[in-house]
Design a protein around this nucleic acid. Sequence first.
DNA 1: TTTGCATTGTTGTTTAATCAACTATTTATG
DNA 2: CATAAATAGTTGATTAAACAACAATGCAAA
Lengths: 151, 151
Amino acid sequence: MELEKGLEIKDFISLINGRVSATINRHLNRRFKAAELGITTEQWSVLTCLWEKDMQTQQYLCDHTFKDRASITRLIDVLEKNGLVVRMADPGGDRRINLIHLTEKGIELETTANKIIRESIELATKDVTTTDFVTLTSIFKTIIGNIEDEN
Amino acid sequence: MELEKGLEIKDFISLINGRVSATINRHLNRRFKAAELGITTEQWSVLTCLWEKDMQTQQYLCDHTFKDRASITRLIDVLEKNGLVVRMADPGGDRRINLIHLTEKGIELETTANKIIRESIELATKDVTTTDFVTLTSIFKTIIGNIEDEN
DNA sequence: TTTGCATTGTTGTTTAATCAACTATTTATG
DNA sequence: CATAAATAGTTGATTAAACAACAATGCAAA
């Protein structure tokens, strides 16, 4: 991509690198708080993996949330402290592994959380066509591919 | 936007809400570190405003970096500690205001930093057309508008 | 003029990301 | 089998964001 007049470096970075992301994050965290969900969006992203399929390793959660191991360790610490998940031993006997298991309380959060998320997405993407979103997704994948290849 | 098959909520959030942003941030911060620039991308975003026009209030820097006042206070603390900027009194006599002024050291960083940023953008946007980028920018603006209006 | 409101900036607390160094366990290989 | 290398997770230090509460200053309206 050629950077041309009207496409300033600062705008590029500001848009791609955090502004949208931060705005949505702030918005969602406020909604979570208002609904007294008791979780943050980061914790939600971990729970999302488990709602899809329970009993995953921390490494699996790293790969699917794009967070690093240290971050996942600490998020699981919080979720465990708040009684939403528990760390379990691998039935297969691999003692390096923790399997993360949803508690009842963790399972019950799904409905409310997803309702809030859906509402927010609808709000955010009012006037955004599905076609546009496909374009956006594809650009993102290109960018991530370009960067991760070289790192 | 209707969420359809193939456009999972999780994907939406993962893409919009942090993954691209985090990846680029990580990439840039590593480059900055490798080049021994001595600043982070967050500090760079503040400096960018000052390189464009020196002697701005902290409030101006908030508005242009989309950070809140507390964040700017602390970023300026760091930049000042590292000798890149100084807080100055308003010549107009408004004692609520700090004017942030680039030091020689702060001015000198621009060339090197911008070189790294340009290289990274070229790398990241290899195979992204300008048209695509315009689409992306417009979607972002819509989304931000939708959310900020209601908040 | 003074009283109230708006603006600017700071501070404390909590949450989370990054990076590097580390432990424990498992697997490969020589 | 023994040793090296890979994998899984933890911990400490540093950076930064969000939110709320706060202080100081400036301005406007009664």
